[in-house]
Design a protein around this nucleic acid. Structure first.
Length: 453
RNA sequence: GGCGGCAUAGCCAAGUGGCCAAGGCGGCGGUUUGCAAAACCGCUAUUCCCCGGUUCGAAUCCGGGUGCCGCCUCCA
């Protein structure tokens, strides 16, 4: 069976066909680096990561491109407000992004292009649009004439007339039509600039993605992803720019990730209502956060709440406990169960895939309890593959002083238990639990782990 | 005002015409244990927001209603 993807443009789920057999080009809209990365960003990127890993698992060679838009109005605003160089603002949040990305075990993209490093490609596509009479220059600004692109609105399902009637945009006297958007913005005192055929200036918002995605992946390319909030105007405008400039389709599959909501409303940078991923990582295991994000299908909204995160944290601990039972076992090379693969092939249905994973755990435990080590190990191998495809990475236990101390403590406690001094043995266990260390007495001896209970 | 989405157990969440409505968290009972923990077994939605309709049969399709959310402005 083939991978089926829901395409926002067609509003249907369809079997994936790559532009080039055996390869897939994915452009995932990254951040405009004007503020800290939050849980909403992370949701989109975790989904992108799982999609990418599943393609790789399915035998595709994946070219994964994720941009940083490092020049725009908000970055300039912030730079002026803080009195910091605009480049430093971008660097700050890009660094924070990579720290979070690594802790979340997001596989590194093939390329991380930045708008400011592709000014040349941007100028080329704007020039092309101007030559064709689709873009026009006004006082050093270049605008895209939306009436010159037939398909305008096809992604977001909007019609130009409807947009105009419900317009909330400030009428700009330089624009022919209020929905024309800036491809190039003329320089203003105190702002960064690059030289262009239209004088000093800088790129508008949407153009960098049209320029960079096709630069790295060709046109058309396979999959363009991002948060749902990018559908309009960002992705709509990307389509207009790329297709009008080159008279060929831009993207074959549009994949959009649902919102993370905060107290019933959308989490958003612009309102300041967001939960920074770095703050969350201080309180939760990155795998628990990933589990929390993947237990809902990517197109449905997720409600942010500490309780839901706690549930995911517990579920993740269940997985860790499971893995610790097999620590010494050499995992065999196996295929994951069909139910898992089918779930993922069906528009990346990670909740169903996780169902298969948990069922596998139960089976493996049952085999192990029954003494059927061979089947237990084989099922354990399947679990490892599934965890890997979904991008989970159990924390490696670093050998530290605490291990040595625990060893001594467990030895002493063993003596106490042999002497049936349960009161003191239980005291040790109870006090350790208060500090987040759980003891488990098994017939083979006592294990310890970090956990909430 | 225009367009779109969602409503499934205490909580999270799959399921889009037909075996007992996946799975996770929580709870209850049991096996096991010195007691716990972990693990396993059983129970925890006779019913899928409400009202009609189509059908032999619907959570799933159609019509109406209610509630919540999103986009139309910067946003993953």
């Amino acid at each position: 069976m083939a991978i089926r993807i829901y395409n926002t443009l067609k509003r249907e789920k369809k079997a994936f066909k790559p532009v080039k057999e055996g390869r897939v080009g994915i452009y995932f809209c990254g951040m405009t680096v004007q503020d800290r990365p939050h849980l909403g960003h992370m949701r989109a990127f975790v989904v992108g990561d799982a999609v990418r890993r599943f393609f790789e698992f399915s035998g595709y060679e994946v070219n994964y491109v994720q941009n940083f838009t490092d020049i725009d109005d908000k970055i300039i605003d912030r730079s002026i407000r803080e009195g910091t160089d605009w480049r430093k603002i971008g660097e700050r949040y890009i660094e924070e992004y990579f720290r979070a990305s690594d802790r979340m075990n997001l596989k590194r993209a093939t390329f991380y292009p930045r708008a400011t490093q592709h000014i040349q490609e941007i100028i080329e596509i704007v020039s092309l649009l101007e030559k064709k009479g689709i873009a026009y220059e006004r006082e050093g600004n270049v605008y895209f004439d939306v009436t010159r692109f037939q398909g305008y609105g096809k992604l977001s399902g909007k019609k130009l007339e409807e947009l105009v009637s419900g317009a909330r945009v400030e009428p700009d006297p330089l624009k022919k039509n209020p929905f024309d958007f800036a491809l190039w913005k003329a320089w203003k005192e105190g702002e960064p600039y690059w030289y262009s055929p239209w004088g000093k200036g800088r790129p508008g918002w949407h153009i960098e993605c049209s320029a960079m995605s096709t630069h790295y992946l060709g046109q058309p390319f396979d999959i363009h992803g991002g948060g749902e909030d990018l559908i309009f105007p960002h992705h709509e405008n990307e389509i207009a720019q790329a297709e009008a400039a080159r008279d060929k389709p831009f993207v074959n599959y549009w994949l959009h990730v649902g919102y993370v909501k905060l107290a019933g409303e959308k989490m958003s940078k612009s309102t300041g209502r967001f939960t920074a991923i770095a703050d969350l990582l201080e309180r939760y295991d990155p795998n628990a956060i990933r589990l929390y994000l993947l237990q809902t299908h990517y197109r449905s909204p997720i409600e942010y709440s500490e309780e839901n995160l706690m549930q995911a944290q517990r579920a993740w601990e269940k997985i860790e406990v499971f893995l610790s039972r097999f620590e010494s076992a050499e995992p065999p090379s196996v295929e994951p169960p069909a139910s898992f693969v089918e779930a993922m092939e069906d528009d990346f249905n990670t909740p169903r895939a996780l169902g298969a994973l948990f069922e596998g755990m139960r089976e493996a435990n049952t085999f192990l309890d029954a003494g059927d080590e061979e089947r237990a190990r084989s099922t354990y191998g399947e679990i490892l593959v599934m965890l890997g495809v979904l991008g989970f990475k159990p924390q490696e236990k670093a050998e530290t002083a605490i291990d040595e101390i625990m060893e001594i403590l467990l030895e002493v406690r063993k003596k106490l238990r042999e002497e049936k001094n349960y009161a003191v043995a239980d005291l040790i266990r109870g006090r350790l639990q208060e500090k987040g260390i759980i003891l488990e007495d098994t017939p083979e001896g006592t294990r310890w782990r970090r956990g909430t209970r």
